[in-house]
Design a protein around this nucleic acid. Sequence first.
DNA 1: CCCGTATATGCTCACTAAGAGTATATACGC
DNA 2: GCGTATATACTCTTAGTGAGCATATACGGG
Lengths: 351, 351
Amino acid sequence: MNMELSGRRKPTPETAHRTPDTDTELSPSVGIGLNAAIVAVAENEPVALVVRGEPDRIGATDILPFGPFDPIEHRTLESGLRAWVHNQTGLDLGYAEQLYTFADRGRHAEPDDASPHVVSIGYLALTQAVGHHGLTNGVWRSWYQYFPWEDWRRGRPEIIAHEIEPRLKSWAEKPSAPKAGSSPIPRADRVRICFGLDGMAWDEEKVLERFEMLYEAGLVDEALRDGRSAAREWTDRPKLGLPMQSDHRRILATAISRTRSKIKYRPVVFELMPDEFTLYELQKTVEAILGPHLHKQNFRRLVEGAGLVEPTGDVKTRTGGRPAKLFRFRREVLLERPAPGVRVSAPPVRN
Amino acid sequence: MNMELSGRRKPTPETAHRTPDTDTELSPSVGIGLNAAIVAVAENEPVALVVRGEPDRIGATDILPFGPFDPIEHRTLESGLRAWVHNQTGLDLGYAEQLYTFADRGRHAEPDDASPHVVSIGYLALTQAVGHHGLTNGVWRSWYQYFPWEDWRRGRPEIIAHEIEPRLKSWAEKPSAPKAGSSPIPRADRVRICFGLDGMAWDEEKVLERFEMLYEAGLVDEALRDGRSAAREWTDRPKLGLPMQSDHRRILATAISRTRSKIKYRPVVFELMPDEFTLYELQKTVEAILGPHLHKQNFRRLVEGAGLVEPTGDVKTRTGGRPAKLFRFRREVLLERPAPGVRVSAPPVRN
DNA sequence: CCCGTATATGCTCACTAAGAGTATATACGC
DNA sequence: GCGTATATACTCTTAGTGAGCATATACGGG
């Protein structure tokens, strides 16, 4: 509501030099877009649901399901999102949470100021890739296709040492635009921290920071499309992951960050799992999302000790070895602990 | 950007039953409001900056600084927020981060459907209460005036046992509206978890959940104003904290939640501190925000061991005892650790 | 001037959680 | 039947954290 925004009253009589112009239209020509990053894990591969559109000027075809928010038709932001996702993909979302509201990027992309400005509200949804109830449109794509530098499952991805590290280091040597206010952290340090260079630990949660740094350095296609000068300055700009249309790749990066962080203190992994699963399957799912730094015995102790799962009594055979006990999510843990999750801690420095 | 929202292209040709009506106005009549929860700590009291308006229909006068987002004038959401805050209070914000975008509450408050619908984007800002550069309007109010049940500094607040617990328990006995989909957690369990009843631990981060539960149960004034039936059903509804106009109290609750959580993994306390401070002052500030569950010696070991502070060499005398060493924030910690913060863990169950 | 008090600071101990290694059990395939 | 792959159990070590005790230093009152 924000009644004071609806033109009834001025905020405070004594207020300052400029008060909100509450008697005229608010935020003229601002559209609100709802974007869904729908995440699942299929065969140990973390995937996101994308729909394909016509290639844009940088050849990006992939789009996250989206649609404008209509306050008449949609009771809430989230229900609007669910409606759009259903209409575009046939999927009925389960778990969904709001991520972030973006409005400040890509203004350069559309110099035509008559076009409406858009604020996009990103959502994260978690679901099972198989047993998706009625998917009619869209494909599941590994999120590491868009962010190959995030895939540490087979060790440190080579793209970091070969492509990213040298270019970011040369970018760091250029002077950054001086910002007003406090002394900013030098670029070289930001690079080190973001990408875990020179002995710094790799922090798997910094997905968004890394993508934004690559954007700022002009190293992802979207930066070129948006007319960022840093992008034009490269003579040998590599292809760092698949681009997406609009700022959808940034929203997906936010979704990955949030998923990686939330899995540790809320039992959201189970949104990605079938009803029954073995502990090994659960571990593989967690590793698909976080990276493979998990010790099998400790993982087992962790999830059982935290009361996150309970055995069903059945076993799964044909695993290639001793049959594995089947488990299910133990819902009662929600009633017992304030923040249950797969509390794996950061891996040691692996460079 | 979001070019596909700007009327240039349809999302996907093969897309489903209904595609976004991109040829007409997007999200008609949606205004975007920017709201700032500006937090400081003054004399060991956590405070928020509010401006006073005319009383609304429930007598609420307090408003968070706010204003509509204007995409022409404001380069980014955050810069728009800073402009509004400056204009309304004279304050130049330092640290600010986005909290959440609200759109789904209080529709009942304004049955006049011709009034524009508003989406409000909440921001959290942290600053020093003293040395505020040029505050011309607005007052600092303890955030516990709005959320007295959150103030555990003198033990468990009596308002929980006297007012909240009995009423929430009787509310929990009423049947909740059955929701479609998965089996929801019973109200009684939600109450226990939210407010740490019956031996459950108090989780100081659940500020928003608690406020929303009180709203849902009709126990805060805003619920009555919004015409929630649960609010009308109470014959002896108590006054649970000061109400605010619009949904600003909810935004403040979100801000407190975020502050309490973020202080643990990012060095944001220092935004609230003067340049030089004693460890005891730092501890008191942390306790003002989180609650007083800190062991002095361990706190000291924690912040020094984490490299968060460094001694200035000076001491502060007239402390009533041995002079205390003065410290300052050690900025280099940002370059060393991925997630530096005052990593205090949850207090033991205290009921 | 000395001593009580309040605060600051240092040290130690116990308990727990987490990383990592070793050993044993059980099914499947050749 | 036996090798192999996987599941499961047990143990060791180390780091972190909660908590208590001891000591240092200034201020104020008798």
